[in-house]
Amino acid sequence: MTSKDNQVASWGAYLLSRNILAVSFAPRDTHVSQVQFALERGVPALIGIIASIRLPYPSRSFDMAHCSRCLIPWGQYDGQYLIEVDRILRPGGYWVLSGPPINWETHWKGWNRTREDLGAEQSQIEKVAKSLCWKKLVQRGDIAIWQKPTNHIHCKVNRKVFKLPLFCKSQNPDMAWYTKMETCLTPLPEVSNIRDIAGGQLAKWPERLNAIPPRISRGSLEGITAEIFIEDSELWKEKSSILQED
């Protein structure tokens, strides 16, 4: 789970108290002290500006992405930033946006922006989200939540309705470091039934912590087998027990 917020990882800390692990991104070097504070609270955090390079994670890494008052122009640049969020979200994952422009009807005066400007910004975000085949689940108060589809069957059949972007063909969806973002959509693994979850069903937490991920058990990651995963997990358990004894 990833939480992009500039409130000293407050959302990540809230989730951690409920046994949900988040990663918090501070947008620039001036927030380095906030990153340190987040780490001291036990929340993983790093400087992770979203600009022209992919976020440093493979595709389908997170169950949820959250942005709180991060002032990222989500609807601009052909939806490039939301397309990147789509890449790192797992099938059926959630994108949560709080702060501007959500609930602009109530807050527009305090934000020192016009109603027209804020309304247009939210409309553009809604347009991009729909083009990614995301479903808007709810908007309540200052929070809006969208859900990524569990597969792309319905989206492909109705691509003219959704105005779906072209699917990426050239880049490996799991390449992240020093890889430029694109305005094409990362395709989900093919499925035969619209009810299927692309890439396979993940185990529920906390069982997922030690379960073999579907992409490994299916042999889709070159050089990584189920046996290697089990051996690596046992090694980390051994190291963890030694640290606890110390």
Rank of each mutant, 00 (worst) to 15 (best):
N6T: 02
N6Y: 03
V8N: 08
S10R: 02
A13D: 07
Y14R: 11
L15W: 08
I20K: 13
T30Y: 03
S33E: 07
L39W: 10
E40V: 00
E40M: 03
R41G: 15
G42Q: 07
G48M: 08
S52P: 01
S52C: 07
L55Q: 05
P58W: 03
S59R: 05
R60V: 05
R60I: 08
F62W: 07
R69L: 13
G75V: 07
Q76C: 02
Y77C: 13
D78S: 06
G79R: 01
D86H: 05
R87K: 01
I88S: 05
L89D: 00
V96S: 06
L97H: 01
I102R: 07
E105N: 12
H107S: 09
G110Y: 03
W111E: 04
N112D: 06
I125P: 00
E126C: 01
V128D: 00
L137R: 09
R140C: 10
R140S: 10
R140E: 14
G141W: 03
A144M: 05
Q147V: 09
Q147R: 03
P149E: 00
I153Q: 06
I153H: 04
H154W: 13
H154M: 04
F167V: 05
S170Q: 09
W177Q: 14
W177E: 08
T183K: 05
T186K: 04
E190R: 12
I194K: 10
A198E: 05
L202S: 12
E207M: 06
R208Y: 06
A211C: 04
I212T: 11
I212G: 03
R215W: 15
R218G: 12
S220I: 06
F229E: 02
E234I: 15
W236Y: 13
K237D: 13
L243Y: 14
Q244A: 14
Q244C: 09
